[in-house]
Amino acid sequence: MTTDELTMSATAPILDVDQVSVALAGRQILDQVSFSVAAGEFTGLIGPNGAGKTTLLRVILGLQRPGSGRVTVLGRHGSLRRQPVGYVPQKVLLDPDMPMRARDLVALGADGDRYGLRLPSRQRNEAVREMLHAVDADRFADARVGTLSGGEQQRVLIAQALISRPRLLLLDEPLANLDLRASQEIVSLLARIASEQQIAVLLSAHEMNPLLPVLDRVVYLAAGRAASGPVDDVITTETLTALYGHPVEVLRVHGRVLVVAGDQPATTGTD
């Protein structure tokens, strides 16, 4: 396992996951997973469906308590942690008839955890406008969120997650329902935000190819175990075979990476 140590900088990492194990209903979902993420880094959390990607994100968010191990965000861990972590979930309930404009959803990211009615605030409106501009969503700021396309909704949700100025942004399968072009747009948007605002981005995906041009590092999950490091170190036949516990082969074809086990591709890369 190439669980590399935190040697990349003198400063503490934004996120440190240390020996995290989770068992749900008697099944081991995560087994001693360790990795860390530094500011401005774009990290892909890659693995086949059911590898434990969502569970790992939920542990980092504090929505799922790990059986053992610990998660440190900006030097804090456990219940003391109240650090802003931006989160874009895989599923959101946005019906077309939901009376909510794109800008209203982003505003909820700023003050959705406050009680009582919202008072008018020029400062908040300005922050919302800026954030919509940053994700290139000005055009549909006043449209109902439920009527937007998948890619447009994804932009609005990213703006919602970013408006509280988090240092760490987690995204759960944001490319799952997007076509190729929308995927590429979201990926380059996230890469730009990560470097411009020095935010650490951790993005889960079952398909790594759209991410390859921008990935600084990869955390590969298989069967609950993880290998992490630079893409070229982790996505190798040796590392992934050790991780899966059975022979797999990594093929590079026309700049694309295919992971195949026997005759069957272990991750889809043939679309």
């Binding site: 968010l61 929505l63 979930p89 309930l93 939901m98 959705g112 997650a161």
Partner: peptide, 8 residues
């Protein structure tokens, strides 16, 4: 809209 975002 999203119970998970709210909980987080």
């Amino acid at each position: 809209v999203s119970p998970d975002v709210a909980a987080a």
